[in-house]
Design a protein around this nucleic acid. Structure first.
Length: 504
RNA sequence: UCCUUGAUAGCUCAGCUGGUUAGAGCGAGUGACUGUUAAUCACUAGGUCCCUGGUUCGAGCCCAGGUCAGGGAGCCA
């Protein structure tokens, strides 16, 4: 029996096993908030209805103690889940002593140190449920579309794209690197199977400390024979909309728990705007408006809004601090105000950080040099003007990976495409049509100073039945982060691995 | 690697211009209360003020170096 099914057992006796998420006590009554992994439910132990031993056992329960209980399910609209259980029997597995995560605000370092326990909290639980929906939806979409799942190797003999820093390991005495992408292997498999996708871990040894980076993350890389860049973009759009739609269908309770405003997810079910690199640059530099919105002006207005909310937040903190310093004030009111002040202070820190960052972003947008890749701040600047993901394609070939196909009509550009999520989230997908011309590919490999012998097998794909083909890579944690509206990728994966973080 | 912010009780934070014995709330423990929603009320315990050195009659506060963490840049999904 699980909590999620209780509505079907009104006025019946059930047995549940789980943990104490909270406990409140009153004379003669113990209110246990039980969680069992499928949901939470208030269970009431009434002294007059159970044996003294059971009541004493319930009264002693601490946060995250484990127990099993039997009781009658009562309909009660006031409770989350709409039901309450009136306990008739209780057996404790273990009394948990001094559970570290308290019923209050905690700092991020403390929570990350306790990630193994933090996962039990409602918000993290909801995020993991949504992550699960997304993973399952990805597999279902590709399977429905006739794709074959393949596993690319994790050990690789060389830095395959020659860009990022890779993790080096010892492979029977020779250096081997943890894979930063399965794409090249995906291309080989696509020539065997037609349409394939990989779903596996990816490693980048970048010393990045930002809200969008992890050292280890999960990537989905489809590759399709006989697809050009436009068919690729059609597929990306259909795919992302399927995933978003599945979350909207399956996870309304979870989206409510994490307080996600789903309006932007709804609008994302409409056609994604497709911009060329040239158009995107004009928008970032403020030379071209989007729906009446100008990038530079929007940023300047944001800065003003932030400055005024800093002032009002500071004023409220001072006001509440004065209030609790007055003599004769009730303890409950001090408690309430202190918690409020702690919240205000942490949002003040965020605001001040934005206040420091926005001028840098403005500067970077104003002075953007045509021909460069978009930086993190440029992505933030442009995506805040849209209410759905956008696709940017036809990039200057110098800034993109060696394997991207040159636009035959304008060889200055490569047929890459990046999907940028709205609300400032930035790149969630990178892909494109692949170069099929062996000679152009050899030139590119030399240009990037990559070891030719390591790419002989890859060049074989162009020697034996070369066909137009395309594909893309989706960062799982990035899309979870955007769909959930999280502030940081580290909340999107059970045990994040980032620079300086290997435990727990 | 660079820029920037920070480190005080188990947790979240105060601590003024350097000045006597470092504070609050939460959490924990004890007691009170018959329906609570982070319950409420009273009491109790709880400190290497990140580390090393310096300035000073005196350092949680000032200076130098370091460690760790947050945010950003670069790089990327």
């Amino acid at each position: 029996m699980y909590i999620k099914n209780l509505l079907q057992f009104i006025d019946q006796s059930v047995t549940l096993s789980g943990w104490a998420a909270n406990k409140r006590e009153s004379k003669g009554l113990v209110f246990l908030v039980m969680r069992d992994g499928t949901g939470i439910c208030q269970c009431v132990v009434d002294e007059s209805k159970v044996s003294p031993e059971i009541f004493a056992a319930a009264s002693k329960l601490t946060l995250e103690s484990s127990f099993t209980l039997t009781g009658n399910v009562i309909k009660d609209e006031r409770q989350t889940g709409g039901v309450e259980v009136q306990v008739t029997d209780l057996k404790v597995f273990q009394y948990a002593m001094d559970y570290p995560i308290a019923k209050k605000e905690h700092g991020i370092e403390f929570l990350m140190d306790n990630r193994h326990l933090w996962l039990r909290s409602q918000r993290q639980w909801a995020i993991m449920k949504i992550r699960n929906t997304i993973i399952f939806a990805i597999h279902r979409f590709f399977q429905q579309e006739g794709f074959v799942e393949m596993d690319a190797p994790i050990f690789t003999g060389n830095a395959c794209e020659g860009t990022s820093n890779l993790f080096e390991t010892d492979y029977y005495g020779d250096p081997a690197y943890l894979s930063q992408s399965g794409q090249l292997y995906g291309e080989a498999m696509a020539m065997a199977m037609g349409k394939i996708y990989t779903f596996g871990p990816t490693f980048r040894a970048e010393k990045s400390k930002t809200r969008r980076h992890l050292s280890e993350f999960w990537m989905i890389e489809p590759e399709m024979a006989f697809y050009d860049i436009f068919q690729n973009m059609d597929l990306i759009e259909k795919f992302l909309q399927f995933v978003i739609g599945e979350v909207l269908k399956a996870n309304q309770p979870e989206l409510t728990i994490i307080e996600r405003d789903t309006a932007v997810l709804q609008t994302s079910l409409d056609t994604f705007p497709r911009l060329t690199y040239d158009e995107a640059v004009a928008i970032i530099k403020g030379e071209k408006d989007v729906n009446g919105k100008n990038s530079i002006k929007t940023l300047e207005e944001d800065l003003k809004v932030i400055e005024s909310s800093i002032l009002s937040t500071q004023a409220e903190i001072t006001e509440r601090e004065t209030k609790i310093a007055q003599p004769g004030i009730k303890k409950g009111e001090i408690n309430f105000n202190q918690n409020k002040i702690a919240q205000l202070k942490s949002s003040l820190k965020d605001l001040e950080e934005q206040q420091r960052n926005i001028p840098q972003w403005l500067e970077s947008a104003r002075t953007f040099k045509y021909g460069n890749d978009l930086g993190g701040s440029d992505e933030t600047v442009i995506t805040r003007l849209f209410d759905k993901p956008i696709m940017v394609y036809d990039w200057p070939h110098e800034v993109k990976a060696f394997y991207l196909k040159r636009n035959p009509e304008d060889p200055r550009f490569a047929r890459g495409v990046d999907v940028l999520a709205p609300e400032g989230y930035g790149e969630i997908v990178g892909g494109g049509e692949r170069e099929t011309d062996e000679k152009l590919l050899i030139d590119k490999i030399n240009e990037h100073e990559l070891p030719m012998e390591a790419f002989e097998w890859y060049l074989d794909l162009r020697r034996y039945g070369s066909v137009p083909h395309a594909g893309f890579g989706l960062g799982l944690e990035r899309i979870v982060t955007w769909i959930c509206g999280l502030k940081h990728v580290r909340e999107s994966i059970p045990f994040p691995r980032s620079y300086g973080r290997l435990l727990p």
